[in-house]
């Protein structure tokens, strides 16, 4: 934020002086569309998703149309990175797998690919950083990053980039590392971080009450598209992440004004392990009391068997509202 502080007058609002609420109106999305009301379907339509990974195979039947393919190239002499359009596909299969999971979760989204692996061995995080920065600068709605770097020296730049993306409404959905090591950017609060659960339900996501990783999604034995038009099964946090990216794409297609924090809230409210306490039943005429006994632990009311989130303003579409 240093750069922003040094350039006042660009519309930054450090405090609201001389203006009132009427001067800063926000038109939010409406609540959930009632069934059969003709509202937008939560299919991902109109949502631009970028997969930053090993590339995406072209013409894979389980991926479908790829709207744009780029590659980060690093000059071996100067070390400078640049992003170019590419006709090459996937160097490994990993990016194709991620794209396929996004596609089947949000069938009508736009899919783009930035390849940050496979040009040659590039164990440093600068290629990853360059690809992610480019994706944020392009203003994609969602960036799927099933990768991280363990290199500390990239942590600060990644952190600043993640914050920049958060406020610019480019939501970075990032995989937690599969082993208990420090890596980035999934550790940052400004991204949506994802790990695997071990359940067989391909439509189940969970909220983690003990972050940093915030959500768990299917990541075990997941069927995915692979090189050569094939489908294989694979395991890892990498494959849980694009499922959450796909859910976010569905949410955004029905509610395009949602911010990153609203998306997180919708994922939280629709998570299968988030239960809601029942309202205290009060005698008529009595005011509600926060300390009423129904708030005690153990009073969790399992009233929500349906995955439909009960907070309609935010959660519509997280589980297929609009279908």
């Amino acid at each position: 934020m240093e750069a922003a502080m040094s350039t006042p007058g660009r519309g930054l609002t450090w405090s609201l002086r001389g203006r009132g609420p009427a001067d800063v109106p926000v038109v939010a999305d409406p609540g959930p569309w009632p069934p059969d009301s003709g509202g937008p379907a939560a299919t991902g339509r109109g949502v631009r998703v970028c997969v930053v990974d090993s590339g995406v195979e072209r013409d894979h039947p389980a991926v479908g149309r790829v709207d744009g393919s780029w590659v980060v190239v690093k000059d071996p002499d100067t070390g400078e990175t640049s992003v170019r359009p590419t006709e090459t596909g996937d160097s490994c299969g990993h990016g194709t797998a991620c794209a396929g999971i996004v596609r089947r979760t949000a069938p009508e989204c736009e899919l783009h690919s930035v390849r940050v692996l496979g040009e040659r061995f590039s164990g440093t995080g600068d290629v990853l950083l360059a690809g992610l920065r480019w994706a944020v600068e392009q203003g994609f709605d969602l960036v799927n990053l099933s990768l991280s770097t363990t290199r500390d020296r990239f942590a600060r730049e990644l952190h600043e980039l993640a914050d920049q993306a958060y406020f610019a409404r480019t939501v970075i959905v990032a995989s937690a590392h599969n082993t208990p090591v420090e890596s980035f950017p999934w550790r940052f609060a400004s991204v949506i971080s994802v790990g695997s659960h071990q359940e067989d339900d391909p439509g189940l996501h969970l909220y983690n009450p003990s972050p940093p990783v915030e959500f768990f999604a299917p990541g075990q034995n997941v069927p995915v598209p692979w090189l050569g038009g094939a489908t294989i099964r694979t395991t890892g946090n990498s494959f849980a992440t694009p499922y959450i990216t796909g859910l976010c794409a569905r949410l955004l297609s029905a509610h395009p004004s949602m911010t990153a924090f609203q998306l997180k809230n919708a994922l939280y409210l629709s998570a299968a392990n988030v239960r809601f306490r029942s309202l205290p039943s009060l005698p008529a005429g009595e005011a509600s009391d926060e300390s009423s006994e129904s708030d005690e632990p153990g009073e969790l009311h399992r009233s929500r068997e349906s995955p439909e989130p009960p907070e309609p303003r935010l959660a519509a579409g997280a589980d297929g509202t609009g279908n």
């Binding site: 990993h94 692996l117 599969n178 038009g229």
Partner: peptide, 17 residues
């Protein structure tokens, strides 16, 4: 490159593997 472990299964269905 990624420093991550990985498991894949059903590879023989992939002609390009």
């Amino acid at each position: 490159v990624s420093g991550e472990p990985m498991i894949v299964d059903d590879l023989t269905t992939s002609t390009a593997f």
